[in-house]
Design a protein around this nucleic acid. Structure first.
Lengths: 342, 342
DNA sequence: CATGCTGGCCAAACCGCTTTGAAATTCCCG
DNA sequence: CGGGAATTTCAAAGCGGTTTGGCCAGCATG
């Protein structure tokens, strides 16, 4: 069933039917009702393809996830972010296009996306140090919102981000206040912008407390469980092991906990863990009493917000860049306690 | 830059340029080279919108993820499956459209997807008991592949699935062979097809060994960490607690492990765990020595295979339904050992 | 009563590509 | 060298919508 057929049935021109369906005023209320009823009755939906061509808008938003050519990892946080964004798209009539692109042909992919016109806007994921996509997207004139920030990009752009620096500074200070002095940082890969900021927050807090940073207590890698485990095992074997760990992800924190338990340390007594918690739907940090003390910020909310911002930008292209800084809350759970004496 | 402009530059008709770009034989090799060079030089890409309208194919594949209206959970396994599928799409020139649809307006969503013609085919995720989407999609005439199976659908259809029944029967038998008699099942929600099959495999193995199934040792819920923990805590508090757990997901198994450790049981000695392992990129089951004994089957591979099957179906609509049964391997790790005496 | 609006509708052009059917050119062979 | 076949190119008609500009009837205005 296409527009022509529907209009034939109704004895109206396609013009009138189109206007009736799209809420234009130049059609009598009576006709509009007749058209709407017929459309429903015949289960008519305008072809997305034709509509996109005619209007010049595809009503789709692209999520481009960089896949590192070295580490083939699918970011688990991505799933929840996308779920949040998808909610908004469904509500606003947009579709979601997902591309995973290897970082070695990133530029080509973005250019193609723009030239082919399959999306009206883009969410940029996982900004890194020396991020080049922002300049590229500006040049391409495609509306976009960055989830996170690109530290060394001087131009202004739309972003939605957690205040990672402040969160990790607070978390570190919290551990310092508990008497910890040897605090390990088990971070994400430090080419990722969020990891750079977390490290900065951690170092700031240490500096403020006059505690020297120890390179042997700082790790950065992909945030898997095994990485958490192995890092913790090695650090706990040092002659002066850490008494606390600051970890960048719940999953990695699970690994750290496993390591601690393997060497007979009890969490919250012998060793403390604070982790960042993205509030993932399948990995809720306990029920009433959180398992881990954590800096929590829902990545699903971030997805929702980013989608809303992007739709706003698409609708109102001239507006000034939007920045949404989300603050993480510090949740005190069972994984922290005073530094053990000695 | 559109086709018309490019053809004007070249002094050729749009027809010829189109044919040259799409590899039709009716154009001289010399002209083709000239056209290709000009296209590259001017960075020309055909508009996806126009192409879709003209060809009737959108070169996009829809992934429809049901979101339960009760439990708002984003399946973490989904991310890796999608990553696998995306690889194939990138290679084959398809785009991926993601819809999360609440199960209460599922039928509407699918009808809309079909009528609007924004995708050429669909991957159906998370089939459940009493699955109605298969009949619907047949009716709509949209090519599709199911990830999993729908037990009570008698019509034939394309599917890619893990042999869940066999995997769980093997795992149960493995535990039985180690002397365990009180084996708990910590399953996914048992309206999900995969969970039904896993339960069947578990029950079969028990029956074969003449061990009666104990309803107090069988749980089914969303596979979160907290669920694993709470179920295990409760079961371990029974007067006759289980000596082994068979768990449906690594994440849930982590919760079970946490519960075991809380009550002072050591894994592989006091209590055993076998889990299903989807081989998630961020949750590799240890390095050389697996943490958990597990039935392993890469969901990323499943995504790849499902995508390939679907593309095959789209290209060759008449073919007989394709079934791809993936076998899980049983990996022996550190989480299992002989049943404790007594 | 001529004029100017206005509300309701329509024909036709257009979005940017593919594809059909035909025309123009080249080639081959008797 | 002429004529049919093969090669190369093109004009025009879609695909299924939106949108521009115009038509017509009915009504108020001067």
């Amino acid at each position: 069933m296409n527009l022509k057929q529907l209009s034939d049935i109704l004895g109206l021109s396609p013009t009138t039917v189109s206007r009736a369906l799209n809420g234009y005023p130049e059609v009598s209320e009576e006709t509009r009702q007749r058209v709407l009823a017929a459309a429903r009755a015949h289960n008519y939906r305008p072809s997305a393809r034709a509509k996109a061509l005619a209007t010049g808008r595809s009503m789709a938003i692209g999520h481009v996830m960089p896949i590192s050519s070295q580490h083939e990892m699918m970011n688990p946080v991505f799933a929840d972010f996308v779920a949040g964004a998808a909610e908004v798209y469904a509500r606003e009539g947009y579709e979601m296009l997902l591309s995973l692109v290897r970082d070695d042909d990133e530029e080509r992919s973005y250019r193609e996306l723009a030239a082919r016109g399959s999306v009206d806007g883009i969410i940029v994921h996982a900004p890194r140090r020396g991020e080049r996509r922002i300049r590229l997207l500006h040049e391409l004139g495609l509306p976009f919102v960055v989830h996170g920030r690109a530290s060394d990009e001087r131009a202004d752009y739309n972003w939605v981000d957690v205040n990672n620096r402040r969160a990790f500074r607070r978390a570190t200070r919290f551990l310092l206040d508990l008497g910890h002095r040897r605090i390990a940082l088990v971070n994400g890969i430090e080419t990722m912008d969020f990891a750079i900021r977390r490290r900065a927050g951690y170092l700031e807090a240490l500096a403020e407390a006059g505690v020297p940073a120890d390179p042997r207590l700082m790790r950065a890698d992909e945030m898997t469980e095994v990485y958490g485990h192995d890092s913790a095992r090695e650090m706990l074997a040092l002659e002066a092991p850490p008494t606390a760990f600051l970890v960048s992800s719940m999953i990695t924190a699970i690994g750290v906990r496993r390591a601690a338990e393997e060497v007979g340390l009890r969490l919250g007594r012998d060793v403390s863990i604070v982790t960042h918690d993205d509030d993932l739907s399948y990995f809720r940090n306990g029920g009433d009493e959180p398992i881990f003390t954590a800096t929590r910020s829902s990545v699903r909310d971030a997805g929702r917000i980013a989608a809303e911002v992007l739709i706003g930008v698409i609708r109102n292209p001239g507006a000034a860049p939007v920045h949404r800084m989300l603050e993480a809350e510090l949740i005190v759970g069972q994984s922290t306690g005073p530094a053990p004496a000695g």
